[in-house]
Every structure is written in C-alpha cells, then in structure tokens.
Design a protein around this nucleic acid. Structure first.
Lengths: 129, 129
DNA sequence: TACACCGCTTGACATTTTAAACCGGTGGGC
DNA sequence: GCCCACCGGTTTAAAATGTCAAGCGGTGTA
C-alpha cells in the first residue's frame, strides 16, 4: 500500500509502475530456475530429464511449468522427436529470441566470477561451469 | 533454500552440479525483486519508501528482507542519514560490486526492448520507464 | 522377466510473498 | 493544540508458489 504511487486501483502490483519491457523482462527472468534453464539450453538442446539434471535440482513439476511458460513466451521451442516407432522424446531448444539471452547470461557470468569467488574449501572448481 | 549462498552443507541439490560462481550469481539475482531493486538503485540512492515505490509493488516486509540479504552480500550499502535534528532517514546505495550489475541490467534491458514489445492483455501503459 | 531409463502428472506439503494493519516519530497546515 | 500525511519499518494470517515422492505408460538392455 505504501508502495502505491497514486493508483487506488484493485489490481495493484506491476501496473502502477507503468508497462515497460525491462520491467517485464526482469519479471520473466527472475522466475525461479528460468536463468538456469536458459543457461543449460545455451549449451545445446536437451530432453526433459537431461535438462533437469543440467539445471541441477529443479524438480519435474516446477520444470514442466517453467518450460510451458517459456514456450508461450517463445523463448524456447518444444519439439517431439518422433524416433523409431513409438517412443517420443521431447527436445527443448532455444528460439532465436532465447538465444539472445546469451548476453544476459554472459553478463551474469562475468559478474559472478569477479565478485562471488569466495568458494568453500574442498570444493574444487569443477567445470560444466 | 537450495540456492543459498552460504550453505556450508555439502549435501543436497545444487552440489552435484559442481560449485560455480555463475550458478550462485543466478541464485542471487533470481530472487524476487532483486533485479528491480538493483535497477532502481542504479538510478541513484534511495530511502526505504522511495525505493519501494521505484521498484513498483514490492511490499515492505519482502523489501526489508531483500535489502538485508543484499547488504550481507555487499551489493548494497545502508546508511543512516542523520538529517537536521532527530529524524533519521535510511539511505540505500549500491556498492561498487552492486554497480557492476549495470551490465546485467543493460543486457536485460536490451533484450527486453528487442523482444518484449508486444503489449500484454490488461496492462495499461503509463510512464516511469 | 527384471530393472533402469524416458517424459511427464498428481496430490500432499513446505516455503515465500502478500496485503493490511500497526508502531513510534517528524513536519506542516490550521 | 489537533489532524493528517509521511518516514522506516514490524507483525499477522492467508494466498501464491515451489517442492517432494510416488507413480503412470512406455521402451531398451540384459
């Protein structure tokens, strides 16, 4: 309430800020796991479980939900690979739009490496990073 | 909790991915409102309520919590301004580390402007962007 | 036949975010 | 002096969101 500018409006939240692409972009990217998913996919297309593993800890329910959302936003593409016979493998890829998030991930990566180094002893800097 | 930075526990989730700063950075930046807060502060230091308004919709409880977290991460600084007489105003600023998130915000900004232009049903545009 | 993997879905549960009211204090108008 | 708006928050309970574990139909490998 104290965060309102002036709007006595019912819907509140993001609206009174006025719509802007940056605001929305942040809204999308801050959803839990989204950046992890994008990062994993920048590394190449992946199947569902494969993606879950690459992302590192997201459970299937959440992952399904995120993937649906990202698909409607046209950030990723879901393709059902009709392999031999009946088994259909789902493959997730970034769309061109999604691939452009590379710059965002890079920026985060750079920042993280520069400022978040305080690692724990015993944790060897693995790759896959 | 699994994205916790300080987790000393060798157990659980994120670990099998192997520790890496990017992973951790994503963990920090994806917390709700964090990017909004950083963006607002990149625009100049702000008081508590002022920040809440700039961020656009975050409630005070969450904001308090986020600010504390960001402070322990040394991304922001809290200063208590001893204004004329008695009234103490709290002012939040980005540290140099926090200021370097400018590149991340810029990347998101660029991406958002390029790909998120189409309106969203029900969201009326205003200003402040 | 048995067992491990695939891509999910379900339903119960835990955590996080939220609105709203409230606290003590300041400052200004009347 | 009284009223009321603003400051920086805290507290509550309820809603939203995320998670866990189990399980489904199906395949492929041994």
């Amino acid at each position: 309430m104290n965060t309102e500018l002036s709007a006595p409006g019912p819907s509140a939240t993001a609206v009174e800020k006025g719509f802007c692409p940056v605001y929305r972009a942040i809204g999308v990217l801050q959803e839990k796991w989204v950046l992890h998913i994008v990062r994993a996919l920048l590394d190449g297309e992946k199947g569902f479980n494969e993606l879950a593993r690459a992302v590192g800890g997201c459970n299937s329910a959440t992952l399904t939900q995120r993937l649906e959302h990202l698909e409607t936003l046209k950030i990723i593409d879901k393709r059902t690979e009709d392999t031999h016979g009946k088994l259909a493998r789902s493959v997730y890829t970034l769309t061109p739009v999604g691939r452009e998030l590379q710059s965002v991930i890079d920026a985060i990566d750079t920042w993280g490496r520069a400022h978040l180094q305080e690692g724990h002893p015993g944790v060897v800097s693995a790759q896959g990073c």
